[in-house]
Design a protein around this nucleic acid. Structure first.
Lengths: 182, 182
DNA sequence: GTTCCAAGTCATCAGTCGATGACCCAGGAG
DNA sequence: CTCCTGGGTCATCGACTGATGACTTGGAAC
């Protein structure tokens, strides 16, 4: 683009969006700073200037808010529906979580970021609705959700790719209820 | 080792074992041929000579047999126990499956290898015990198992790392039964 | 003991990557 | 119009990677 607007904030936002896309499809190692910069039409050195390093870029790009609502007062029967809805919103709206998952498979810092997400967001959210053993239950819910996402979005197992949200809801609902309430 | 035995078959086996270890801990991209060769005490060029390329080394290293027994005649109540036992045998005995999982997160060929495992081993094994919708059920079982493995061995979520086999059995059992029989 | 093939090594290439630091220039302030 | 700050570029470095091909050497066969 010859007519690039010289706006640092906007450029940074574009870079982060491009980074999420790249990290989400290629993973951490195969994503290059040059490629991310190229997607935005900018020099690679600028990325380093803004984010310090590739690791810094990733950290910023993988900053994640699951947006789990307050579950206090949600009826037990509706819990899994709320969670599955959140699941699809988080996984299909943008590539942030996908980037984090792909990277976490091979990068310890990404794995730690993932652990922080569960400890800081999933755990507390579920603590409002389960009695004891909240961390254990949160981890099991996390494993379920990550497994489904891995199989559907990363491995692309055909039966799961073809599954509608309602079907997924029907299958995952009892499982989540089991982990939350039994 | 100055006194290396000049035995191609043995060296190849050592290289494959080292490759599985490296791929399993570092993932595909961060594993270098030099490192694998170094682990065995051999020159990197030899790896190329034997396996053609890094991709060829991985393909050979990730060749996997889940060893799922014939489930015909296994009582419904025992199914999940058999499967969870197999799970731990496969995941904790060697690093092959871990290598495949880590690699599948960022490599399309590894993802395809994983799909082949499910289509060729998990699906058929479960078809012997479920009526219809065997592929869908197999995929859900796979998602469950992979999610648990991802959370326990890759992300190392503390509650799952600390979980004993019996506890895992107690949690996963009803879930697998749900996917197989409901 | 000589031969000879396969096991293993060595030097090296071509490419790519993250990162650095000097530089250029658009555009608002005065 | 001029100045000058900061957004953006350019050239380049050093390290590392997968891969190649010519080379050396161990050891069984005879």
């Amino acid at each position: 683009m010859p007519g690039r607007v010289r706006d640092a904030a906007a450029t940074q936002a574009e870079l982060l969006a491009a980074a999420r896309r790249r990290f989400g499809t290629d993973g951490y190692e195969r994503t290059t700073i040059r490629a991310v910069a190229g997607d935005v039409g900018v020099d690679a050195a600028l990325v380093i200037r803004y984010f310090g390093s590739k690791q810094g870029l990733f950290t910023r790009a993988a900053d994640l808010d699951l947006g789990i609502p307050d579950l206090t007062g949600v009826r037990a029967g509706d819990l899994s529906k709320v969670l599955v809805d959140r699941f699809f919103a988080v996984w299909e709206d943008d590539d942030t979580f996908l980037a984090l998952l792909r990277a976490a498979a091979t990068s310890e810092v990404a794995a730690e970021a993932m652990r922080d997400v569960f400890a800081g967001q999933v755990g507390p959210a579920l603590a409002a609705v389960t009695d004891d053993r909240a961390p254990e239950r949160a981890a099991l819910v996390g494993a379920t959700v990550l497994g489904f996402a891995l199989a559907r979005y990363v491995l692309r197992l055909p039966p799961l790719v073809d599954m509608t949200r309602d079907q997924a809801q029907a299958w995952l609902g009892p499982t989540l209820r089991h982990y939350l309430l039994d």
